[in-house]
């Protein structure tokens, strides 16, 4: 049964937390792919070091057991080993540092002009999203609040503490600029599949650029203790094909412009 479940999980991309999950969620953006790859790169060195250290440790315990060999060798100096134990660790840390910095700086990089800007504004305890690229005045704006669906209202198949009433709809395969800020206390806008975790600080606008590579529904949660209902402030991003996004936004905009 469990094997079947695992098989199923490897087939369908997992964009929300799973019970007993050990690894990352499946990547939806190049950034997240980079994070996962970096994790694997570093894990190679981690295992290498672990095996080496355990081997030395076990060997020392074995060979210098107090009954076998009560008096250890009294070496206090050895040029060769000192050179080796200086060079190899520095090489290893270089091999870890270079991809790490490359990823770190590429995450901040604004390479291209984004196609849309979405503002995510943290509140106690919900998120407000603003799409105001299509405004022609200060008032008119596509703005909505995104509240968690309470447990008793969940439908079959929905995730507890993760579902919201209004999802953030974004176009897939498009460069997005997300501006994260807060209206009251610090929050943090995080979507693990997108490799995004950005603090929402009142009075400050933090920008993240993401490119969602596949359509899907991605779940995240507020990641900065923001008060009593911190655990009940989820984030749901729904990536749709670009033309569907266009029609959706214009459908939501036209009634507003009609009224105005």
């Amino acid at each position: 049964m469990i094997v079947l479940k695992w098989l199923f999980l490897t087939i369908s991309p997992c964009d929300a937390a799973e019970p007993w999950q050990l690894g990352s969620q499946d990547a939806a953006t190049p950034i997240m792919q980079g994070i996962i790859d970096l994790h694997h790169d570093i894990f190679f060195f981690l295992i290498l070091i672990l095996v080496f250290v355990l081997w030395i440790l076990v060997r020392a315990l074995w060979h210098f057991h107090y009954k076998e060999n009560a008096i250890p060798q009294r070496i206090v100096h050895g040029t060769t080993i000192e050179i080796l134990r200086t060079i190899f660790p520095s090489l290893i840390s270089m091999f870890i540092a270079i991809p790490s910095f490359a990823l770190l700086y590429s995450m901040d990089e604004v390479v291209v002009d984004p196609a849309i800007t979405i503002k995510a504004i943290g509140h106690q305890w919900y998120w407000t999203y603003e799409y105001s690229d299509y405004n022609s005045s200060d008032e008119q704006s596509l703005t909505f609040d995104s509240y968690m669906i309470p447990e008793e209202d969940l439908e079959l198949g929905q995730s507890r503490l993760l579902e919201v009433d209004n999802r953030v709809v974004v176009p897939a395969k498009t460069h997005l600029r997300i501006i994260v800020t807060s209206a009251d206390v610090p929050h943090s806008w995080a979507v693990p599949s997108s490799g995004v975790k950005c603090d929402a600080v009142p009075g400050r606008l933090n920008q993240i650029s993401i490119l969602v590579q596949r359509e899907g529904v991605y779940y995240g949660q507020c990641s900065e203790i923001c008060g009593t209902n911190h655990a009940f402030t989820p984030i749901v991003v729904e990536a749709v094909p670009r033309k569907d996004y266009g029609s959706r936004v214009s459908n939501q905009l036209i009634p507003q412009t009609g009224e105005a």
Binding site: T174, R242, G246
Partner: peptide, 22 residues
């Protein structure tokens, strides 16, 4: 074409190259 809305927004401004866009 109800599905043809222009996806355009403020361009990246290199006076503000950092995360902080305030």
């Amino acid at each position: 074409t109800p599905d043809e809305i222009k996806l355009e927004t403020a361009p990246a401004d290199f006076r503000f190259p950092t995360t902080n866009q305030t």
